[in-house]
């Protein structure tokens, strides 16, 4: 190891498959051709490297997102917005009862750098963790180059709305965003604007559906419009959400096109609560005490609607606000 007294280390040498090992606090991470091996003082865990890298990519790109990012039923992170818990078995009933669960809290920049280093070292040139399985090669095998441009895509986040002058702009062929193969039938016409002189900055509109049809990533909510703390975070979904998202607040889904099925489980134990099928035009809340994972058979357009207010996690955790959105 390069050092003993720091929270993150990268091994000096690589293993026989060409990959470095990493430590973050007491957690250790190793990979071989097919698997990641995660160990901590009270246990160890294996995951498919394909699933692990897809999950790690989201956790890094979203800067640990809202609440809990479960990589699977054992391993994941909890965002405390400034610090992050990295855990094993914390949200797994059997691990909890056996008192084998383990968690460490790290300053966000520390865990961010550790996760970025792992993602960069373990993602080969053949694999894009943001792409659907049909659109990328495999994550497997011995070390084979890298894919830094794919894993460091700039995160889109509009301040006011996409297409407002000075804000995020629409996607075009010229800007490197061709229409996705599953959305070739989506109308590419933009709204017709007739601003009076001097009002060009405020008479603004764009085609949300055309914009989404040109997204080159899956399962990556990004802001297109903001009404104070109310954020429209649409995303295009295909195959399986690579993480199981545990909520620290209510979030809402509006299915804009096609269909997604969600498995909903208790956030803390993993016990099954429901199965939600959403078709175009359906609106559904995800309560603040559940976790969910989605399945999209065809690439679909999903509007994830978030309330970004920093007061909410504490209101819900303390019981001052309900875990479900409305009373009726």
């Amino acid at each position: 190891m390069t050092a003993t007294n720091i929270q993150v280390t990268t091994s000096d040498s690589v293993n026989q498959d060409g990959y470095h090992a990493f430590t973050l606090g007491e957690f250790e991470f190793r990979r071989d051709e097919y698997f990641v091996y995660i160990s901590w003082p009270t246990g160890q865990h294996m995951m498919s490297i394909d699933s692990f890298l897809r999950a790690l990519q989201r956790d890094v790109a979203w800067d640990f997102f809202y609440g809990i990012v479960n990589f699977d039923g054992v391993f994941g992170t909890v965002n405390h917005y400034g610090t992050v818990d990295i855990f094993a078995g914390r949200y797994n009933d059997a691990y909890r009862k056996a008192e084998l669960d383990y968690s460490e809290n790290h300053e966000t920049p520390v865990i961010r750098e550790a996760f970025k280093s792992i993602l960069a070292d373990w993602t080969n040139a053949t694999f894009d963790p943001f792409a659907s399985p049909h659109e990328t090669g495999a994550a497997w095998g011995v070390k084979n180059g890298d894919n830094i441009s794919a894993i460091t895509r700039r995160r889109v986040a509009a301040n006011r709305m996409v297409a407002v002058p000075g804000d995020e702009q629409i996607r075009t062929d010229e800007s490197g965003f061709p229409v996705n193969r599953h959305f070739k039938d989506v109308d590419q016409g933009e709204p017709i604007l007739e601003p009076e002189p001097g009002f060009e900055d405020e008479v603004v509109a764009f085609s949300l559906f055309a914009y989404l049809s040109r997204s080159d990533v899956t399962w990556n909510p990004s802001v297109v419009s903001a009404c104070k703390d109310s954020l429209f975070c649409p995303t295009t979904e295909e195959y399986i959400l690579p993480i199981i998202h545990g909520n620290d607040r209510v979030e809402w889904f509006v299915q804009l096109s096609d269909q997604i099925t969600w498995d909903v489980e208790d956030r803390d134990t993993g016990a099954v609560r429901s199965r939600v099928t959403m078709k175009a035009g359906d609106v559904c809340a995800m309560p603040a005490d559940i976790r969910h994972q989605g399945y999209s058979p065809k690439r679909s357009m999903l509007l994830v609607w978030e309330n970004n207010s920093s007061k909410i996690p504490e209101l819900i955790a303390s019981g001052q606000a309900p875990t479900y959105p409305v009373e009726f």
Partner: peptide
């Protein structure tokens, strides 16, 4: 502004 299907 003239909006059609999917325009915001």
């Amino acid at each position: 502004i003239h909006l059609r299907h999917g325009h915001q």
